[in-house]
Amino acid sequence: MRICFLAGSNSVHSIRWISYFVDRGFEVSWISLAPATPEAQGLIAKTHYYEITPSPLADYSGRQALLNLPGAIRQVRQILKKEQPAVMHLHSAGTYGLVGVFSNFKPTILTPWGSDLFFASRLKRLVQYLVVGRAQLIVCNGEKIRERLLSLGAVETDIRIINFGTDVDIFKPDEGARLPSNLEDSAPEGALKVLSLRAFHPVYDLKTLINAALIVTQQKPNIHFLLVGDGPEKARLKAAVQIAQLQKNVHFLGRVEYVDLPALLNYSDIYVSTSLSDSGLSAATSEAMSCGLPVIVSDSADNRDWIAHNKNGLLFPPSAPQQLAHAILQLADNSALRHKMGASNRALIKEKNNYSEEMAKMAAIYKKMAGVDSPKR
Rank of each mutant, 00 (worst) to 15 (best):
N10I: 00
W17T: 09
S19T: 15
F21L: 06
V22N: 04
G25C: 08
V28Q: 01
T37H: 08
Q41D: 06
L43D: 13
K46T: 04
Y50H: 15
T53Q: 15
R63M: 13
A72H: 01
P85E: 00
A86W: 11
M88W: 07
H89I: 08
H89C: 08
A93R: 05
F105L: 07
T108N: 03
P112Q: 00
S115E: 05
A120E: 01
R146H: 05
A154M: 10
I159H: 02
F171V: 00
L179H: 02
L179D: 04
N182P: 03
D185V: 10
L195W: 00
K207E: 15
T208R: 09
L209A: 08
Q219D: 11
P221N: 14
V228R: 04
P232S: 12
K238F: 01
A240D: 09
I243E: 15
Q247E: 15
V259G: 03
L264N: 04
V272Q: 05
S279H: 12
S282R: 04
M289D: 04
S300K: 08
N303H: 15
N310W: 08
P318W: 10
A327I: 00
Q330N: 11
S344P: 00
S344W: 15
R346V: 00
N353S: 15
N353K: 11
E357L: 13
A363M: 13
I365Y: 01
K367H: 12
